[in-house]
Simulated assay, not measured.
Amino acid sequence: MLKFTAIMLDGMNYAAWLFLVAVGLTLIYGVMRILNIAHGAFYAIGAYVCASALGVFYAAGLPGALAFAVMGVVALIAGVIVGLVVERGVLRFLYGRDEVLMVLVTYALFLILEDAVKLIWGVESYFVYQPYAYFGFVEIGGLPYQVYDLMIVALAIVMGIALWFWLERSRMGRMTTAVVADREISAAMGINVTRIFATTFAIGTVFAVIGGVVTAPKIAVTPGIGVEVIILAFAVVVIGGLGSIPGAAIGAIFAGYARAMSVHLAPAYELFAIYAVMAVVLAIRPHGLFARASGRKI
């Protein structure tokens, strides 16, 4: 029974983390048709900025509860700044180009940002465990579990609902949906497509940065942490269907529980589990579970 409880809790936590990391990637592709390889570097920047900000915070002797407010502010500011700098400084000059070219450009950005992280923060590891330990643990089904991990699950749910509300209920979201359907007609109707792209990319970057920020207290923040993340994020969005927000959520759940079951039942296959799920899904549905039907232009 304890093992079942552990699988359920770990799968839920890992799925929540994967959703936070992957949803920005699928949002950017769905609106802008950009496979953003640099997404992993945004995650790493979030982790490093969080570690630095919390280091200053705790050195100043401020109340521990305020650390979570600092993490939220850091995620928002860093995500918006990095997203707008990359979109306005590089990507806006390449809109309308071949998707393969965009992949190469974002891969180059990933390499540049990875080196920039090393230049700014060096190659030493950063540890900021205090937020992870602050709330302690709670016993669930006889198993002690960190409250911080449960907070990540709650955060993923809140962020997912907020993103859905923005897309479905806000004026900007409805304009974004129109741009996804047909950007040329949307522009002809007076929608500022450039502004939609900039906003979308900034929001997608904020999600990646949030993933890094909430992960920083759980790990040693070291160079190269963005490499594995971008691979996992792509696996999740491919399972769910590129460009689908519900698909990112379902893909994260599939991947999260596949990993949890592998860790507890067959540890030797942990790294293989997520990609096995992806292979099975693609064998049945080559475009993912929730891939949008697209019209063919003649």
Rank of each mutant, 00 (worst) to 15 (best):
D115F: 08
K118M: 14
V100H: 12
E139P: 02
L91F: 00
L91A: 01
R97I: 12
V90L: 10
D98C: 13
V128P: 00
D98H: 15
F93Y: 13
F110W: 10
E99P: 11
G136D: 03
G141D: 05
T106D: 06
V123C: 11
S125P: 10
E139S: 09
I112E: 05
F135S: 00
L104Q: 13
L143E: 04
F110H: 04
F110Q: 05
E99N: 12
V138N: 06
M102I: 08
V128N: 01
Y107H: 11
L104D: 11
V117E: 08
E124L: 13
F127L: 15
V138I: 11
F93D: 01
I112W: 01
E139D: 11
P144I: 03
P131I: 03
Y129W: 10
Y95T: 00
A116G: 07
S125K: 11
F110I: 03
L104A: 12
V123L: 14
L91M: 11
W121P: 02
E124I: 10
V105N: 08
F110K: 03
V105I: 13
V123G: 12
Y129K: 14
E124S: 15
G96Y: 06
Y132T: 07
W121N: 01
D115R: 08
D98V: 13
I112S: 01
G136C: 04
G96S: 07
G141T: 05
P131T: 06
W121H: 08
L101D: 13
G136F: 01
W121I: 08
L113S: 01
E139Q: 10
L113A: 07
G122F: 05
L101A: 14
Q130K: 09
R97E: 09
D115V: 13
Y145R: 03
D98L: 12
L104V: 10
E99V: 14
I140S: 05
V100E: 12
Y132D: 04
V90S: 04
G136S: 02
Y129C: 11
L111A: 12
L91S: 00
E139T: 13
V123M: 13
E114N: 10
D115H: 11
Y132N: 07
Q130F: 06
L119V: 14
A108S: 15
L104K: 11
L143M: 06
D115E: 14
E114T: 13
G122Y: 11
V138E: 06
V90P: 03
D98E: 15
A116S: 11
I120Q: 08
P144Q: 00
Y95H: 04
L143V: 14
G122K: 07
V117D: 04
P144L: 02
G136Y: 01
G122P: 09
E99R: 12
F110G: 01
F127M: 14
E124K: 14
G141W: 03
I140G: 02
G122Q: 09
I140Q: 04
Y134N: 04
V105Y: 05
G142N: 05
I120M: 09
F137I: 09
W121M: 10
L104M: 15
L101M: 15
T106C: 04
M102K: 06
G136I: 02
F135C: 00
F135N: 00
Y134Q: 05
L119W: 13
L91R: 00
M102S: 09
I120R: 09
V103E: 06
G96N: 08
L143R: 02
R97P: 06
L94N: 06
E99A: 08
L101V: 15
